[in-house]
Design a protein around this nucleic acid. Structure first.
Lengths: 340, 340
DNA sequence: TATTTTTACACAATCGATTGCGTTTTTTTT
DNA sequence: AAAAAAAACGCAATCGATTGTGTAAAAATA
């Protein structure tokens, strides 16, 4: 079990001081060009790696960005993470990933444990069960920037990267109406989260703007799991003669559940009921009929979020600002809503 | 921008030495029970969090486990990661996740950068494009245990957690034969990796044991991407009159691509061609016909891998062993292979 | 050549927590 | 009550890298 090589080892071998080694490796001026080369060569030869703990302790910078999302094994967040990872790697940052499982307590827990890790920034998508946001305050008072993605809130002073939820939902609902639907239903996530309330607002406005009635009982609030999709269908179809002919879902999981449930009930999609999902999950191209859905630029969102995080890290702390970055979505029309 | 609270702050406030604070917080004997309570209370009140960098620097333990997988946004690895995350959290470990994108160079890159992070253990699934495994050596000589999962190799001295690839493939192929297939094809990953060569071996043996011929041209080696599935179909169907009537795929992505390609060609699944995939990806329950596939205990694999990592961390370094842990798989029979 | 400026490096403090060892105080033993 | 043992805590070194300041040598200037 060999010990790791330190700058002291290199210093001894070259008969210079450790400080010179450190400066040489960082390319500081004030170290002769020749010495610098010698040092770098020796460092490479002996497979020297900085001890990031030591460096972080001294500089109070860890070159680490933490990510906190509701679920790691979810297509959308996954892609966001992949995007962050790419940008982080390009900028020589390390990434730490955690999940809240959409539970408030876990979120608080994770956030607290991140506090001892000396991270440089936090990229977070809120859990569905938000109660308050006090657990994020130590970051802000500690000068650690927060970038909030997708599920954002005004209550945290943070750069926000998200999509035009209102417009996307409006687009989805309007599309259903254009396809001939007159009786729209929606499956939404918990309305405490702005992302979902905005989508419902867009959904409502699209209906109103087309002079159709908004049926409150056709707005089903849930955790957006597959079972919830089925429950929503049960709810919508208590009176089959007075059921919706178009469903706008706030994610693809519930949309797919609806399609599958329709098949069981012998309801034709899109002719009896047209369905639109949200996210453009890979499953949407596989389900029959293929699912019409709102495509979100997930990887791009990750990249941008990470970019913003790095920007904030390098900005004088007094200048912490709260930018909003809104990314474009796209309605991907497939067979689950296309009527001839 | 408030400074973080340190043990020195607590020490000053209570008029004791920092060492006592440290011991009190760790529950050391040698600190009076009353003082300990007082310290803990004050620490909680002032929201003290240990500085893990400082602690790690001193103890050479970071309570951090690194994960390296080919792709983060892949269902299987995702679930493995989720499993690791759960076990890590239970044991108060932090997890760092990186991906190699199935490229050798990236893998080397990532591994090297992990070297400066002072991780306690590495859990790795190899990239498809393995050339050699020298980049892992510094961990072993440095006393940092490696747990190798799924895509393992004998060439690294590590605890290995994987499935019975030979048996699983045998089971899959035998099932196809039982369903009446006489002319089997296989889509496999790069055969340099044991995981794939074992599957092909199982595939071969199942055919042989049923006294059927193994057609070498029907074993298609690729990176297992969706496009590869289509290319494989082109390859298998150059002579449609002499094409396979059953395909065993080493992952679900290619299996799904095959089903979709069959539809385009007007080939009936499972009647003309029966198809079996590998992993039990969520998409396999959505594709029509539903995909028969080998279910792997991905989350369990993550849990076990993490458990093993923690075991190794706490073991005297001289005792580094190389256990093999083989997890059970299950053939999930669905419509893509079930013939009446 | 004497003086100033520059260059190239060394010294030593510092970040915050941990821990072996030493010291003081209290308790136990004889 | 004196001696020994135990308990409770402090001192100071340590982990490895960074960085402000100090100093000697080399180069530039007068």
């Amino acid at each position: 079990m060999e010990k790791k090589v330190t700058i002291y080892d290199l210093a001894r071998e070259l008969n210079v001081s450790p400080s010179t080694i450190s400066r040489a490796l960082q390319g500081h001026p004030g170290v002769g060009p020749e010495l610098r080369k010698t040092v770098k060569r020796l460092a490479a030869k002996k497979a020297y790696k900085v001890n990031r703990n030591a460096a972080s302790l001294r500089t109070k910078k860890s070159r680490t960005i933490a990510i906190l999302v509701p679920k790691i094994n979810d297509y959308f967040f996954n892609s966001v993470i992949a995007g962050i990872e790419i940008m982080a790697r390009e900028n020589n940052y390390t990434v730490i990933i955690s999940q809240s499982n959409d539970e408030y307590e876990t979120e608080v827990d994770v956030v607290n444990s991140l506090l001892s890790l000396n991270i440089d920034a936090l990229i977070v998508s809120l859990s569905m069960r938000a109660k308050n946001y006090d657990h994020f305050k130590p970051f802000l008072t500690g000068g650690i920037p927060i970038v909030s993605i997708d599920r954002v809130t005004e209550e945290i002073m943070a750069t926000k990267v998200f999509i035009d939820d209102y417009g996307s939902a409006y687009m989805g609902a309007a599309h259903l109406i254009e396809q001939g639907c007159r009786n729209l239903a929606a499956i939404t996530g918990i309305l405490d989260l702005k992302i979902y309330s905005e989508r419902v607002r867009g959904f409502r406005d699209a209906i109103k703007d087309h002079n159709l009635p908004v049926r409150e009982e056709f707005i089903y609030q849930c955790m957006l799991l597959s079972e919830d999709g089925k429950k929503a269908m049960d709810h919508f179809f208590v009176k089959p003669e007075d059921a919706p002919d178009g469903i706008f879902c706030s994610n693809d999981t519930t949309a797919i559940a609806c399609i599958q449930d329709c098949r069981k009930r012998g309801i034709l999609v899109p002719d009896d009921v047209a369905i639109v999902g949200f996210s453009n999950d890979p499953r949407s191209e596989i389900i029959e009929p293929n699912l019409t859905t709102i495509a979100q630029p997930a990887i791009e969102m990750g990249r941008v979020a990470c970019e913003q995080a790095i920007l904030q890290i390098n900005k004088p702390k007094s200048l912490i600002t709260s930018t909003d970055i809104i990314l474009k979505t796209e309605l991907v029309i497939r067979d689950s809503s296309r009527r001839k």
